[in-house]
Design a protein around this nucleic acid. Structure first.
Lengths: 247, 247
DNA sequence: TCCCTCGTTTCATTGTATGAAACCTCGTTA
DNA sequence: TAACGAGGTTTCATACAATGAAACGAGGGA
């Protein structure tokens, strides 16, 4: 375990403090210290530094810490003209209108996946998909697509990750991925989320590299397996068109 | 100048590196080193740390650095149920529909202001207002509202800031702020942005504290001074209703 | 081929991040 | 009212972790 020594401890700790704010938006100092396992005084100094640069602010009133506007600033300037999450939006809306279900766009980030864009269904009962969500790369139709069409090295890295569910039979899983490559899309039925089902297809850019997964998801009672297979061609086609838009 | 010594240098530097990514999304290592004035090897270590935690990634192909998805994740989970930028959205849309111009929501962040929400006009010629933009707290209708209805201490801090434009006559500016308090709203005509004009009103929560500024802005040829004064009552009223929604 | 630029790695040195402890400042309880 | 406890803040000696000079490697123009 002589791993990466070329990293700055104080910065790592500060980023860990920042990461506390995913999921819970208001933290007290001692609370954070407990969570990240550091001394109060250390966390105090880190928070002062983060506050200094506008990455966190203190709620006047509760006196607790929350994220500052620097985060918003960074995330909004992140999008470039060729940002997939912008370029692909019209096609995603088209697909949502055609199928009436929520459409999501996922990219792989190391051994997880992140929903970088979503267009919500307008039905009264619908799948709600918040942008920015970080999900496991093992279960769910999108996960399987992201792995099936990835380099073998990526696949191996994901399956070797400590977060990989040991319960999954790797041989059977790999076979499933082969099927998905052959078929061109993946489905999942109450696999990650009870009551939800999804169909996903790969988005491959003009250079032939997979850059994202396109998923349509909804309540499982509207998306029985045969329904999903009927929807699949439209999704695969949409994904193809999207890929053609990307460098 | 014995200022704050209670902050962590390495973390400050890392955050400065992160802040490079506002405005320009792709950076090489040496480029960043030049910008922040640090040694290549130091920046290299900082970037490795940021990359480790997913705050930056390296574009495969260009090999340059850009923001990672952790930023998206943080910014999306930032919104709480009582987040003004969500709660006030319906009322902002109503106002946009009533006046047909772009509606923005600003909060003060130290000696600047940040656009935390916007609803775009649907006219062919329109003011485009990106969320997350950080603007000076001196010029523009929203700036004047944010200062006019703030504590005197806040006002003083902003005007003492090195970024404050020395060209502005402070006495005249202060008098203008008094007028704005008396009238209840502010206007600006090609003040910050050539060709743009705006009306802004304060959003004051139920405790009587100003929490944001509501602004309507558009091309200056559609928003002559007399037009703005005609629009003002609707904007002031909308801002009042919004304030009533906030703790 | 030779530069020149850019990124990576090493390493001695020092300065700086660290955490224990003491110190505040509230709000709560006896 | 006083005593308490649970936050948060500040101080300080010490060790060790961040630093930047320098050397190295890798492309890619010229």
């Amino acid at each position: 375990m002589d791993e990466e020594k070329r990293t700055v401890r104080a910065v790592e700790r500060a980023l860990d403090v920042l990461l506390c704010f995913t999921g819970k938006s208001e933290w007290g100092l001692s609370e954070i210290a407990g969570k990240v396992g550091l001394h109060k005084s250390t966390v105090h100094r880190l928070l002062a530094t983060l506050e200094n640069r506008g990455f966190v602010i203190r709620d006047e009133g509760t006196e607790k810490y929350r994220l500052g506007f620097r985060i918003l600033e960074l995330s909004s300037n992140q999008s470039r003209p060729d940002d997939p999450s912008i370029v692909l939006l019209p096609e995603m809306e088209r697909l949502r209108n055609e199928l009436g279900e929520t459409v999501s766009l996922y990219v792989r980030d190391r051994t997880e996946r992140v929903r970088i864009q979503a267009v919500q269904s307008e039905q009264p009962i619908r799948r709600v998909a918040p942008v920015g969500a970080r999900l496991p790369l093992s279960v769910g139709a999108s996960s399987k697509v992201l792995l099936a069409f990835a380099d073998p090295a990526v696949r191996a890295e994901a399956m070797a990750d400590p977060a990989w569910p040991q319960a999954l039979d790797k041989a059977a899983y790999t076979r499933q991925l082969e099927d998905i490559v052959a078929r061109g899309y993946a489905t999942s039925f109450e696999e990650r989320e009870p009551g939800a089902a999804a169909v996903a297809a790969p988005i491959v850019n003009r250079s032939g590299k997979q850059v994202a997964a396109l998923a349509v998801s909804g309540p499982s009672n509207r998306m029985a397996p045969e329904v999903m297979h009927r929807q699949a061609p439209a999704i695969v086609e949409a994904a193809k068109r999207m890929g053609a838009l990307l460098g």
